[in-house]
């Protein structure tokens, strides 16, 4: 999926020698899940229902991470997604108040908020020249503060009909999983088959070159931030549907900011930008989901789980990063 990127980048990785990172990672993750399920005698987890459960674990993080992939590809980063997810989930339940007629207005309002946040983030980074870590950490803190100050004891719920998004499905496959698949395909299409996508890679890979080639790099950085915020919004809406009502802490408790960055990098998108893609990111998300499910089956204690996850994050990135010849910081 990242073939376009390779043609644009001076080769420092060579993907053609072996399977792409995404495929290797996905196979390993799925294989790990299957082996653990068989070894612990939990063969029911390999039924359609079990596998759908595994895929459902991917949805929230998957949506955020696709958006994160866009910003990382242009060489930026977004730490505000966790707070934005909480904001969207809270806003959705606040506006709907269980009323199905308010579903559409609520969705529009939520995406409007995301658009605004994305524009602010993008403007601060692209036009203000502020380091993206600090800019988005700042906007994230602002959102989180306003949320916690005003909605600490909120009562509200999304409409029952809206919860179909999280609990309904067709042919045994939940709509939410289909939504993730659809949006992932759309993102991959945009990145690989459109001029916009090619420019995203160009801006991240070589901003000066891109500028010389007449690309408005600032606009692309801005666009990437808007996309990331909208994807975070989608994740927030999904969580609101799944949890019935949003609390101002769901984004923070889910650690969606750091985890989305981690899975993106695990999936082979490099932090400097210009290389990587959605397929790798989704493989990274699958790794996290199958670790969650497998650790449950193994009954590993919560603290040990954290240790293992830390080690696996480092190892997963090291496996493909170690071939890199230059310096990283």
């Amino acid at each position: 999926m990242s073939s376009n990127a390779i043609s644009m980048e001076p080769a420092s990785f060579n993907h053609r020698k072996g399977l792409p990172i995404a495929a290797v990672l996905a196979i390993l993750s799925a294989g790990f899940f299957v082996v653990i399920a068989l070894a612990t005698g939990e063969s029911a987890q390999l039924s359609l229902q079990g596998i759908v459960g595994l895929l459902q674990r991917m949805v929230a993080l998957g949506l955020v991470a696709i958006g994160q992939t866009f910003v990382i590809l242009v060489g930026s980063i977004d730490l505000s997604v966790a707070a934005l997810i909480s904001a969207v989930a809270v806003l959705a339940s606040l506006l709907m108040q269980g009323d199905p007629a308010m579903i559409l207005p609520a969705i529009i309002a939520c995406l409007g908020l995301c658009l605004a946040v994305g524009l602010v983030n993008g403007a601060l980074v692209a036009y203000g020249g502020i380091n993206p870590l600090i800019a988005t950490l700042g906007t994230g803190l602002i959102i989180q503060g306003v949320l916690a100050a005003s909605f600490a004891d909120l009562q509200g719920a999304v409409a029952r009909q809206f919860q179909v998004l999280a609990y309904g499905g067709m042919l045994g496959i939940p709509y939410s999983v289909l939504l993730l698949a659809l949006l992932a395909l759309a993102a991959a299409f945009i990145l690989n088959k459109t001029l916009f996508g090619a420019r995203i890679y160009a801006v991240g890979g070589n901003p000066d070159g891109a500028r010389l080639a007449g690309i408005h790099t600032e606009r692309l950085v801005l666009a990437a931030h808007v996309i990331a915020s909208l994807f975070a919004g989608a994740a927030g809406l999904y969580l609101a549907a799944r949890l019935q009502s949003g609390t101002p802490w769901i984004g923070r408790d889910g650690i969606y900011d750091l985890e989305s960055i981690a899975v993106t990098v695990i999936g082979g998108t490099i932090l400097a930008g210009g290389k990587g893609g959605v397929a790798g990111t989704l493989a990274g998300v699958l790794l996290f989901a199958s670790l969650d499910a497998s650790f449950n089956m193994l009954g590993i204690d919560a603290f040990l789980k954290q240790v293992l996850r830390g080690g696996i994050v480092i190892a997963a990135v090291a496996i493909h990063a170690v071939r890199y010849k230059g310096h990283v910081a």
Partner: peptide, 12 residues
């Protein structure tokens, strides 16, 4: 191992 520090130290 060339792991970017933000990820490496997130892991540790």
């Amino acid at each position: 191992l060339k792991v970017p520090s933000i990820i490496a130290t997130l892991g540790t």
